[in-house]
Computed example of a mutant assay.
Amino acid sequence: MRFDPWNPDFVAHPYDVYAELRREAPVSFFEPTGQWLVARHADVNALLRERRLGRSYLHAATHEEFGQPAPPDFQEPFWRVVNAGMLDVEPPVHTRLRRLVSKAFTPRMVESLRPRVAAIAAGLVDAFVAKGGGDLLAEVAEPLPVTVIAEMLGVPESDRRLLRPWSAEICGMYELNPSIEAQHTAVRAASEFAAYLKDLARERRRNPGEDLVSALAQIAELTEDELVGTCVLLLNAGHEATVNVTGNGWWSLFRNPAELARLRADRSLLPTAIEELMRWDTPLQMFERWVLEDIEVNGVAIPKGMEVALLFGSANRDPEVFADPDRLDVGRADNPHISFGAGIHFCLGAPLARIELLESFGALLDKAPAMELVREPVWNPGYVIRGLKALEVTV
């Protein structure tokens, strides 16, 4: 099998192909998407920190000047939302936005959320156990981070059912060569979510609460589009990865019963286990950046105007960095995985994600100590954001 992100067999198990890329073509051009694939940990890690690359090029050139086609007009509402969030901008705009938003993600602020996260996780798991199990993704993995980020933003409980569908539909645009239908769906979801957030922000300017939307709405230097883009990013980034680490992680443990037994017997391993599950079956397989100036990677010249596709899933299995990388080891101590990225775009919510995962896995280990898989799960078709359709278990 070759690198084929639209092939369900490849999506289910890309790691043999990654090993071949690292050995034989660590930097290679992928014609179907016009991207340079980068497979080794050292190169991926370096390029995440490389300032001659950017998540966007629009701070430096127009589409035409950069040799790229402009997006079709119907996508304008989507890019208006996405390009106003900090993930898809570069300094100095990125610096300003991250400084403003990071006030809500200080270590003290995040740690203060732990009791609430623990209570939400415990309640979800109690309900799950009471009914004898079911779809772990739909009933535990998804509601936990969505509830946490919704409470942080101040989204009323009656509206929270809207958030997960909006997020999933918006993220469809990030897949490689998305279908026209997926593009239109993403545009509609972005438009609906933006309208909702604008209304919520206006209401919170008049009647502020203790939530993040209220705080952002009071910041004069934050435009309405930037407020919307920030909130959309916090929802998408704040739960997509957590959901998929939970699903992929439990599926990984079921496939490695000796490691699951080891974790059940020694709960002190949980922190290293969470890091290892993020490494071993990475939820975000690819992170893309634009080449703003000519660069050379591993002896390969990549000119300005190209896009590099950093293969996180491959970097996290690189034997140059990880001993016996294809083995799941819940006690792995030396684990410099890059599932949260690196450099200025390092995941701002990483500390919160770790708390959510520790509390979720901990509650399931405590309250469902004999949890078993009902049937082998099926992967979603998406490759970039890679996760399961469902994970059916009994308790």
Rank of each mutant, 00 (worst) to 15 (best):
F29Y: 11
V155F: 00
P208I: 05
E240H: 06
R80L: 11
A301M: 04
G154M: 03
L284M: 13
T147H: 12
R2T: 14
F29V: 04
T246S: 12
E240C: 06
V321E: 00
G133W: 06
L222T: 14
V291E: 10
N236T: 12
R206A: 15
F78G: 06
R161N: 14
E65H: 02
V125G: 00
Q218M: 14
H63P: 11
D318A: 09
T230S: 13
N207P: 08
H337Y: 04
R289P: 05
L153F: 02
H184F: 10
M173G: 03
P91V: 00
S102C: 06
L352R: 02
L47G: 04
W250C: 06
T223F: 06
A121P: 03
V243P: 05
A215N: 02
N45G: 13
A390N: 12
E192T: 03
E65A: 15
I338A: 09
W379M: 15
K304N: 10
P156R: 13
M306Q: 11
A186G: 14
E210P: 08
A168H: 15
Q183G: 10
P303L: 10
A215M: 09
P257D: 07
E320L: 09
A353K: 03
G343S: 09
R164A: 15
R267W: 00
V187H: 02
N380T: 15
S252Q: 10
D211W: 00
A309Q: 03
W251Y: 12
L277F: 01
W79Y: 13
R51A: 15
T185S: 14
G172T: 09
R2N: 13
D281S: 07
E376T: 15
G85I: 05
T394A: 15
R116E: 04
R164T: 14
T185W: 01
V93F: 12
M306W: 04
M306Y: 06
G54P: 07
V101L: 01
D324I: 03
R22G: 00
L310H: 03
C171L: 15
C171E: 14
G238A: 07
D135G: 07
T185V: 15
P369F: 02
V384R: 10
F105E: 09
A121Y: 02
G382Q: 15
P71N: 11
S56W: 06
E210K: 13
M286E: 13
G382T: 14
L260K: 02
A217T: 07
A122M: 03
A61S: 12
M173K: 05
G134K: 08
G349Q: 02
A168V: 15
R98F: 04
